[in-house]
Computed example of a mutant assay.
Amino acid sequence: MLSRVALRSAAAKQSTCTALVARTSATDVSGVRDEKNFPRPVRGEPGKVRLGFVPEEWFQFFHSKTGVTGPYTFGVGLATYLCSKEIFIMEHEYYSGLSILLMVYYASTKFGPKLAAWLDKEVDSVENEWNSGRNESIKSLEDAIQDEKTAQWRAQGQELLIEAKKENVLLQLEAAYRERMMQAYMEVKRRLDYQLEKANVERRLSQKHMVDWIVSNVTKAITPDQEKQALDRCIADLAAIAGRK
Rank of each mutant, 00 (worst) to 15 (best):
Y106F: 10
L171K: 14
S30I: 03
A12Q: 13
R180N: 06
Y95P: 00
W153F: 11
Q14S: 12
D120Y: 06
K208F: 07
D34T: 02
Y106Q: 09
Q156P: 00
E86L: 02
N200C: 09
N128W: 04
A230N: 05
F88L: 13
L192Y: 04
A26D: 08
N128V: 02
P39R: 01
R23E: 06
A19S: 09
L101M: 12
Q14P: 01
G243L: 08
T27F: 11
I222E: 05
L171I: 09
R40P: 01
R154G: 00
I214E: 06
Q156N: 14
T150M: 10
Y177K: 14
V188D: 15
K110D: 02
R40C: 04
R33I: 06
Y72M: 05
G243Y: 06
F62K: 03
Q226C: 04
V5G: 02
V126Q: 13
G47Q: 03
M181S: 13
F88T: 00
L82W: 06
L205S: 14
D28S: 07
K165A: 13
Y194C: 09
T16E: 12
V49E: 08
T150P: 00
R203V: 05
E197W: 06
L82G: 03
S96E: 12
K13N: 11
P46H: 02
M210R: 14
I89C: 02
E227W: 03
K189F: 10
I138L: 14
L115K: 12
E35R: 10
N168G: 10
E187Y: 09
A199M: 11
T66I: 02
N128Q: 12
F59A: 00
D120A: 12
Y94H: 15
E45I: 14
C17R: 14
E159W: 07
V32I: 09
L7R: 15
N37S: 15
S96C: 05
A175W: 08
M182L: 15
E187R: 12
L238K: 14
L115E: 12
I222A: 04
R23K: 13
G157K: 07
Y95M: 13
I138D: 07
E163M: 11
V104F: 06
Q60R: 15
K166F: 10
L101P: 00
E86H: 03
S132W: 04
N37G: 11
